[in-house]
């Protein structure tokens, strides 16, 4: 594994500075340029003209949370596949079989969550 020097990443830093600077400047400038005529109604949150009821930060449906969690899990499993894919030729057939096993286990889990109706969106 070659160790990329810091120099390889320096341009990324440059780009970041540029982007961040651009964004910051733009933000300040628009703030400065735009008119400021605040009224009470204007500052209310948008609710199709009706008065806002309740707290907007109400708990949302559990499904979204499940999706997030499942994403985290599967994504991390996928991470394992990247190094393997890069070195696919080196590992050869043994590596392939091992990865198939790994994927099979992953699919068991996948199958399980599907059967547990974790991904059903119609209630």
């Amino acid at each position: 594994m070659t160790n990329p020097g810091l120099a390889d990443y320096l341009p990324i830093g440059l780009m970041f500075l540029l982007a961040a600077g651009f964004v910051a400047v733009t933000m300040v400038v628009t703030h400065w340029l735009g008119p400021k005529r605040k009224t009470k109604v204007k500052l209310e949150s948008f609710e199709c003209g009706i008065e806002t009821k309740g707290n907007a930060r109400a708990p949302f449906h559990i499904k979204y949370f499940l999706v997030a969690i499942l994403f985290v899990l599967f994504d991390v499993e996928v991470i394992f596949m990247y190094p393997w894919a890069v070195n696919f030729e080196e590992f050869g057939i043994v590596g392939f079989i091992e990865m198939i096993l790994f994927i099979a286990l992953l699919l068991v889990g996948f199958f399980y969550i599907i059967k547990k109706k974790a991904l059903e969106w119609e209630d």
Partner: peptide, 18 residues
């Protein structure tokens, strides 16, 4: 876009909003 009024609702979290 530059010239429009910038509205940040009262109930929002200003810092995160930006």
């Amino acid at each position: 876009m530059f010239m429009k009024e910038e509205i940040i609702p009262n109930v929002s979290n200003k810092f995160l909003f930006i």
